[in-house]
């Protein structure tokens, strides 16, 4: 991870817009490629920071669809291999679940 740890901004090239910056990458939260690239230039160097900054991967599918896509974009922007980016932490519930169901532990709960 050491190559993303020094957050001094001189490390990155200038932000230049690209023709497909409007492309939706995270469908659940409607985050575009341009927003992700811009966030990297704003200093968000890890997938966790990108997610907290833009909400990408925080929607109903929990990043199942977009995580790899976001990873590729961030890695390219940072000039590193996607293999060097640690995926975000996984959270319960693995599938979205109604509050009334999550609150219903039944009799044998404990």
């Amino acid at each position: 991870m050491s190559n993303v740890n020094n957050r001094f901004k001189k490390d990155l090239d200038k932000f230049i817009t690209e023709f497909d910056d409007d492309l939706i990458i995270c469908r659940c939260e409607e985050v575009t490629k341009g927003e992700i690239r811009r966030a990297v230039h704003d200093g968000m160097y890890t997938l966790t920071e990108i997610r907290r900054y833009l909400r990408s991967g925080m929607g109903l599918c929990q990043g199942q669809t977009c995580q790899i896509l976001v990873k590729g974009i961030v890695a390219k922007e940072l000039g590193i291999s996607p293999m060097d980016l640690e995926p975000v932490i996984s959270r319960s519930p693995t599938r979205p679940i109604e509050m009334k169901v999550l609150g219903n532990e039944g009799k044998e709960a404990l």
Binding site: M58, G59, L60, Q62, I89, R91, S92, P93, P96, I97, E98, M99, K100, L102, G103
Partner: peptide
């Protein structure tokens, strides 16, 4: 009224 709202994440 929030009983049907889906929980997507806990931390």
């Amino acid at each position: 009224c929030l009983g049907d709202a889906k929980i997507v994440r806990t931390w």
